[in-house]
């Protein structure tokens, strides 16, 4: 593996080729917030709160640090008034579908850190709180880390939600990984089977 030299928040960083900006930033202690990321999983890019500013070839743009690969000469800014504003907006948008979350959860911490007003957008739509920001961590952990595939996504757009596949429910050996990775505290200590509806109920319109 080759080495890549880049600059993060004014500091020079020597990273491994193939690393993401998020990983490289951690080398120099630059903390970039994430909600849908987990080192054990492939970068997913759903929550976008890890958005950073990059400069290359004289052009500046915003990218998701969790998926953007490091390259020589890249300049990265992980914090700026504009980034903070954007992240605050993203958190407030994520709050729309969730509606509520556990105190002390990762999401709760970010809401406070960025001074987000969770009701700013949520007050403009009428939906039942789901306590879920559809980050997919539980789904991906269940399929890619444990290989169980007990839960999955159904629906598209604002109808996207996490469901239980009843025929796979017996695989759920309550490893609690999903509960551990959930950023809002949606998954109850009783496990996913008690936190999500079954796909049959969703498809039949019972939920």
């Amino acid at each position: 593996m080759g080495k890549v030299k880049l600059e993060i928040d004014g500091k020079e960083v020597v990273a491994e080729e193939g690393m993401t900006v998020l990983e490289a930033a951690r080398l120099v202690g630059a903390e970039i917030p994430t909600l849908c990321h987990d080192e054990r999983l492939e970068p997913y890019g759903a929550c976008r709160v890890c958005t950073v500013e990059i400069e290359r070839g004289g052009k500046t743009r915003m990218v998701a640090a969790c998926g953007f690969p490091v390259e020589n000469g890249l300049k990265v800014r992980t914090r700026s008034p504009r980034l903070d504003r954007m992240r605050k907006t993203l958190i407030e948008l994520a709050a729309v579908s969730a509606g509520e979350w556990e105190e002390g959860s990762k999401f709760w911490t970010l809401v406070r850190e960025y001074g987000a007003d969770p009701s700013r957008f949520a007050s403009r739509v009428q939906i039942k709180p789901t306590k879920c920001i559809v980050c997919g961590l539980c789904v991906r952990t269940c399929s890619d880390v444990t290989g169980d595939g007990v839960i999955g996504f159904v629906g598209r757009g604002i109808n996207r939600r996490v469901v239980i596949f009843p025929e796979k429910a017996q695989n759920c050996w309550t490893c609690r990984y999903c509960q551990e990775v959930c950023p809002t505290g949606k998954i109850s200590p009783a496990g996913p089977l008690h936190s999500f509806p079954s796909i049959d109920d969703v498809l039949a319109g019972r939920v």
């Binding site: 976008r48 948008l93 997919g136 598209r156 757009g157």
Partner: peptide, 16 residues
């Protein structure tokens, strides 16, 4: 209707 719903800004931004 057509957004896949994967990322927050598209899914929730369109909703709001």
């Amino acid at each position: 209707e057509e957004s896949c719903g994967k990322c927050v800004p598209c899914r929730e931004g369109l909703r709001v």
